[in-house]
Design a protein around this nucleic acid. Structure first.
Lengths: 334, 334
DNA sequence: TTGTAAGCGTTATCAG
DNA sequence: CTGATAACGCTTACAA
């Protein structure tokens, strides 16, 4: 069966050098004369040598492994197009590095298990993707383990907290201004849960734009990013009886839910209510009318997260907050 | 910062026993008297000892790591609700075991890199999730590494190929019979790519039911599982000019695409054409009318895949093909 | 039932 | 620039 993997020692023998030399050409070829490098590499190829990760980790105290921490409710997590795109983006970037990605499910029930696993040298770094109250655990972990958060977790003031995010305030402001520019004055917004910074920031962006235009009227409702919750929020908004001719929804899923309600009530989009939102995903594209939205460059976000973490592990100083640019995509909902 | 992780040796000292004994209580508590187990565990807790994975792997020749192999086109992969649900299901099951899950992207460009990584003792087993021609590599790898495939890869006759799947033929047959039972006689089908066994099987199920009822008329088109391709296939079907009053679409995404075309043409569902499909996902639920479909128990599939692999690694004999039951969900599309 | 001691395959230190 | 040699932290015969 399994051809017993050749060891570094066998390569050394074959190339007529010592183990140390082979190790050197594998890890820092520059510190060895080109001739030797060539000879050793030849031996490596001939034997099909692959370094044993466990031995490497044990001796070097580096696991070459990065943990991707995802919330316990995995199914819901992957169902969100944003994360469904972000995870592979991180994975893809890492596949070009020496790091391996492991999926670790943050167990709410026994958080200490996760904590220990992460802090015991089994991983070199971590990526934390979703942020709820419980994520305070991770900002604490981040003090001892190189960690990059996607978005700004609550408690992100800690100097060890490194984050990659979009400018949520600016994005929301831009989306809201777009509504204003198209003549809408009675603006409402449905944002995400108040426990999440991105939701708060998008709300703030909406407020800023509204204030600047002098049209803020307190039409705010909260949802949990989902379609269903977006629909509920829209109903509550409508129930207030105030006029609305423009809506900024904090996610395309929310917008989609809201549009269902509008359709039921015979309210036309964009004729009666114009809508802008965030996320250029399946929901934004397939809504009818298709949604004018702020696109988050998910692939770039993922790559940036991964790249930042790799640098952090390498000991480089990286900014605490890296912002990735967004772009407005104009479609038919305004 | 990082409190230096206590070692097995420190635990031994604290508990007043030898390293071997500690190792024994960690790995096979049954082989040690209860009193000793208790004492050692106390020491472990007090010290917050966590075994060093690398050392363990190196000494035991077991990595306690399972690779989840996903196709290179990661974005498309996670976008498919089926895989988006399957991955977390596998992860979740494994989180209850001693195994850790690593994501490995099958690089089409340098397949040997993946191959080597897998075959060099860095992982104890692999889960292969998608099957295209290139997956022949994996049925070969499966000969030396415990591997479980979701679905039946081409080349699955190899005795080392272990698979977990639903009964695609039976499911399609049932879905098609449902159409017949509701009085439809002019049946068409849109199935998946001919390179995938599941698509072939679903087509066969449709054929069997149609033949049994004496109504087969050759109305078959192929799609690639996506909405867009489903729409195209529907157009081709319609272009044939033959009457159609029932359609079995091999996936809810295909069905959704097909329905868009029907809507454009003013063909009513189910009045003019009744539709059944497979997958109880977002697409099936949110189509209007909602789709009557065969549900694949994705969570169970994932758990079964993971459980099978764990047993395979343990050296247990498991059936080459494990079938997981499906259920018909009746909604408004028939 | 328990302890001793020899590895596991690397990296890293330190001479040469 | 290269080669011994000692870790790295654990498992596992083998002895006691």
């Amino acid at each position: 069966m399994q051809a017993p993997s050749p060891t570094l020692e066998m390569v050394a023998a074959r190339a007529g050098v010592s183990k140390s030399t082979v190790s050197r050409v594998v890890n820092s070829p520059d510190s060895v004369p080109a001739k030797v490098v060539a000879a050793v590499n030849a031996a490596i190829d001939e034997l099909g040598y692959v370094p044993n990760l466990a031995a490497r980790s044990l001796a070097s105290h580096r696991s070459r492994t990065i943990a991707l921490i995802i919330p316990e409710d995995t199914a819901a997590f992957f169902t969100d197009p944003y994360y469904a795109a972000l995870v592979p983006a991180v994975a893809k970037y890492l596949s070009t590095t020496e790091y391996t990605l492991t999926l670790v499910i943050a167990s709410e029930s026994e958080p200490d298990k996760t904590r220990r696993h992460l802090l015991s040298g089994n991983v070199d770094g971590a990526v934390v993707l979703s942020h709820h109250a419980s994520d305070l655990v991770y900002v604490e972990i981040a003090r001892s383990l190189p960690t990059v958060f996607s978005g700004r977790p609550p408690g992100s003031e800690d100097p060890h907290t490194h984050m990659v995010d979009i400018d949520n305030v600016g994005a929301a402001e831009q989306a809201t201004r777009y509504l204003l520019q198209h003549g809408r004055r009675s603006l409402a917004t449905i944002t995400g849960p108040q426990s999440m910074t991105s939701a708060l920031d998008r709300f703030e962006g909406w407020m800023r734009a509204a204030f600047a235009a002098g049209v803020n009227n307190g039409l705010v409702e909260y949802a949990d990013w989902s379609e269903a919750s977006g629909a509920d929020a829209m109903r509550r908004l409508l129930a207030r009886g105030q006029p609305i001719d423009g809506l900024f929804a904090a996610s395309a899923q929310i917008a989609t839910g809201a549009m269902e309600v509008l359709r039921e009530r015979g309210i036309r989009v964009p004729a009666d209510i114009a809508i802008t939102t965030v996320d250029n995903d399946h929901f934004a594209r397939n809504a009818s009318p298709a949604l004018t939205t702020i696109e988050q460059p998910v692939t770039m976000l993922g790559a940036t997260i991964a790249a930042s973490l790799v640098r952090l592990i390498a000991g480089e100083a990286i900014g605490r907050l890296t912002l990735v640019p967004t772009t407005l995509i104009e479609r038919e909902s305004v």
